[in-house]
Amino acid sequence: MRYRIVIPVLNQLHFTRQCVENLLAHGTPPEAILVIDNGSSDDTPAWLASMPQLPSVRNPVNLGCGGAWTQGALLSGEADWVVLLNNDIVSGHAFVPAMLDAADRFGLDVVSCAMVERELDYPLETFTAEFVAEMRDVLRRGWFHGVCFAVRRPVFERIGFPDTDRLLFGREDSEFLWRCRRHDVPVGTVGAALLHHFGSITQDAIRRETGVRKFGDHRYFYARIGLNWWGRQRAKFARKAQTRRWVHEERAAHGRTLHMVHAGGGWEHR
């Protein structure tokens, strides 16, 4: 099997069903999808039980994103690539094969696709075709995002699986990216594939239910990767400067970027 798509979920059945149906509609075989139910209390378990052709695992407790990613990766031992995917996405094409083809072309071992976030009030299929035709050769080397990233199997053998530390809440992808950079794993985000991300649906629901405004502790994350206060400031400055360069170069050459936000009828480039 070339790839297995691992989708951790916690409630939000509408988005899970929409994501899975979108993948199937664009040719993804059901057996290439693995849904990890992190203890949902809505109708998610019943829906998964009604889909026997769709592989799934139900955890009695919420293992967190990192725990579910690692669980899915361990259960996908036959796949060359493990694609770690949020459930609050849709796409206008078969984005996973397109993303992996681009990774092979650019020599990447971890890869993300381009992304539009927030409001889906534009013609997705038409926009996607135009975007990919224009941006297929664009690459942001050295960065991937946590909404969707694919990992070539040998990377896990080399640097380990995503961190299962629950105190990293929301920063598991950043910790994994840091490890990739430290060990010179080639990573990047490509314009040859595009998805639409509705935007942290599960985390927003948890915030509303619990009243928690911010998850995790950024100081704990930076301590885990060995950065003191000055190291954090240098890392933030370097990241923001690099992002500004990417945005400037992509907009100048193509009029769009690999990370856009669509809200209120306008576009923001990130």
Rank of each mutant, 00 (worst) to 15 (best):
W81L: 07
E117A: 14
D109I: 01
E119K: 13
G191C: 10
G72F: 10
D88H: 10
D165T: 04
V187S: 00
R140W: 15
E117Q: 15
G72Q: 11
H145P: 07
H196E: 10
A114Y: 00
L100H: 05
R181C: 02
V187Y: 03
E157D: 15
V190I: 08
T164L: 08
W81N: 04
R153E: 12
R158A: 14
G211P: 03
A193K: 06
E175V: 13
D204E: 15
V116T: 15
L168T: 00
A103L: 03
R171I: 05
A98M: 04
E125A: 12
C180W: 09
G160K: 02
R171W: 10
G142N: 00
G72H: 09
A73D: 05
V187A: 01
G107D: 07
F169N: 07
W81E: 05
T189K: 03
H145F: 04
L100G: 05
S200K: 13
D101A: 15
G211M: 00
G107Q: 00
W143E: 13
R141M: 10
A193E: 04
V116Q: 02
V83L: 01
R105N: 05
A73Y: 03
I89R: 01
S91N: 06
G146K: 08
F176G: 04
V90Q: 11
A205R: 15
D104G: 14
F127Y: 15
Y122F: 04
F95W: 11
S174G: 01
G77K: 08
R152Y: 01
M115H: 04
D80M: 06
E134N: 13
Q203K: 15
M135L: 08
F198P: 09
V90N: 11
G199L: 02
C180S: 04
A205F: 11
L120M: 13
M99N: 01
L74R: 15
P123L: 02
A129Q: 15
G92M: 04
R182V: 00
T128M: 06
E125N: 00
R171F: 12
